[in-house]
Design a protein around this nucleic acid. Sequence first.
DNA 1: GTTGAGCGTT
Length: 255
Amino acid sequence: MSRFGRSGPPPIRDTYSLLVLNITFRTTADDLFPLFDKYGEVVDIYIPRDRRTGDSRGFAFVRYKYEDEAQKAVDRLDGRVVDGREIMVQFAKYGPNAERISKGRIVEPVPRSRGRSRSRSPRRRYRDDYRDDYRDRDYRRRSRSRSRERYSRDSYRERDYRRRSRSRSYSPDGYKKHGRDSLSPARRSPSRSRSRSRSYSPDDTKRRAGDSSASPASRSPSRSPPRKTPPSPERSPVRRKRNDDRSPRSRSPST
DNA sequence: GTTGAGCGTT
């Protein structure tokens, strides 16, 4: 939203856009206007904001009516501390003045003098690659939230590691301890397993919050085999019963 | 609540 144009950018006849970087996220056009207006006639000030949060992205575009004024503003405001942060002012690459540069008429107005010129070449390439605004926005957002993402990632990793460790710790533990005995614990296993599972159930439910169904699935296979065994014995008794029945019968002939 | 290389809408 342009400071002076509500329905969009104002009619620009011959304006020069300046790019203001390293400004605080709370700095608004109103804060920059008096600063830049002091060094020349400011036509428009625009601060790109995030469409989701609405916060400024940390840089602004200041349009001057004359190039000399813009140049002066750059020279005077570049490196100025605003809101406790040193801002960087330089000519914008994209804009009405960009056409002039395209003509090859203007030869690097500012950065060269200050020697602050960073990697300006690759920037152009990025813009060419960009097609969707979403991607562009996402990319920039990702860059900004790099620190945040890193923190989040660490947290997630730590949690995952801990969870996995715990899972692994219990798995072998149970198997090793009960694995010693034969099928005797097999029947007792489900009983104990369930009992223990219930103890940890609340904890897991709260921690995972309905996510990562892999955990239960992971544990499922472990419990699956032993669980399959119980149903078997269920039918066994039937046959065994018959066996018992047959047992006496078998003994009968023997006798 | 946080952040920090870069290039633009309403």
